[in-house]
Design a protein around this nucleic acid. Structure first.
Length: 328
DNA sequence: GAAGCGTGGCC
DNA sequence: TGGCCAAGCTT
């Protein structure tokens, strides 16, 4: 299975705290990555071999996964762990195997099927994407980045991911995993900046293999490395194929220094109230009287604000005075 | 560019 | 325990 044609030649292990002096990159061969010090072909082979041996067996990665199946997985995986996505993805594709199947349904059905995955606007956007694909793209998931980007809920990352994973194209796929791997291995920082920077994009572009299919596998392989080994907390550096060349490791794993990363408060927020309101509407299979919604939160002002927000977002539909339902 | 947007698991 | 984090997008 692991057709190892290239034996990675890693640089001699440096001391644990060897500072990457400015001369390190200057002395490196022209095709070596700054600080990482590995020739690109060696870097690629190292990560691709690791991926071949360690990749998870995820259903949207099988050869028979349709572009639509890949797109659904990408929507669901936005800010959501794989483990929680798996069962919903299965039932979703059983019920709506093609974009047209979903497009034929009421948007509220998508919101209901979304269950407790979180960020239910994604369900609405996925439904909207299915409608657009059905009405404007012949029912086929577009295979080019720009068209993908025009779909609701599809941003830079998702467009690149679908083009790469579903169609085998060469794109910079920059998600939180990839950003962290590069921050550590290349830049020597424990965490990337809060927002994606032009420098990160340049790094990712410079490291992308030239060959289309190789680039596509590289993209998913780096993501997988970030998800399984180079994790945000408690990275398993002993299992990392880049251990000896990683800039962060070679610098002695200095702690993160940047501005405090924004925490997500939840308890007592409108977000929590929206979640409780929508849960009632999801579980009811029909219209819901105001009283049932009033029961979920004591603060009437905040409750009304949350409900208004849901209506404004199209997640909830007012039927008549004091009666609500998921959108049809 | 920052803020808002769900939910659950982990250390 | 509770802050932090999880394959982002939109406004």
């Amino acid at each position: 299975m692991a057709a190892n044609t290239v034996t990675p030649v890693l640089p001699a292990p440096a001391g644990p705290a060897a500072p990457p002096g400015p001369d390190a990159s200057a002395a490196a061969p022209a095709d070596a990555t700054p600080k990482l010090g590995l020739p690109l072909p060696v870097l690629h082979a190292t990560v691709l071999d690791w991926y071949e041996a360690n990749a998870r067996d995820l259903p949207w990665r099988t050869p028979d996964a349709s572009p639509w199946a890949v797109m659904v997985s990408e929507f669901m995986l936005q800010q959501t762990p794989v483990k929680r996505v798996l069962p919903v993805w299965e039932t979703w594709l059983e019920r709506w195997p093609t974009p047209a199947d979903l497009a034929a349904e009421a948007p509220g059905e998508a919101v209901r099927m979304w269950g407790r995955l979180g960020y239910p606007r994604r369900a609405l956007r996925l439904h909207g994407a299915a409608v657009a694909i059905t009405e404007k793209h012949g029912g086929e998931v577009p295979d080019d980045h720009a068209t993908l980007l025009s779909l609701p809920g599809v941003g830079e990352y998702t467009a690149a991911a679908v083009a790469s994973f579903a169609f085998g194209q060469r794109h910079v796929v920059l998600d939180t995993n990839v950003r962290r791997v590069f921050a550590r291995a290349v830049t020597g920082a424990e965490y990337p900046a809060q927002a994606t920077t032009a420098a990160e994009r340049r790094t990712a572009t410079a490291l992308l293999p030239a060959a289309e299919r190789t680039a596509a596998t590289w993209a998913v392989a780096v993501m997988e490395l970030g998800a399984l080994v180079c994790t945000a907390r408690g990275p398993e550096c002993g299992d990392c194929p880049l251990f000896t060349s990683c800039a962060w490791q070679r610098a002695g794993r200095p702690p993160y220094e940047g501005p405090a990363r924004r925490g997500q408060t939840y308890e007592g927020t409108d977000r929590q109230v929206r979640g409780k309101l929508l849960a009632v509407l999801r579980e009811a299979h029909d219209e819901v009287p105001q009283a049932r919604l009033d029961a979920v939160w004591p603060d009437a002002v905040q409750r009304a604000r949350a409900l208004d927000g849901l209506v404004a977002d199209g997640l909830v539909e007012p039927v008549e005075q004091g009666v609500y339902r998921l959108p049809r």
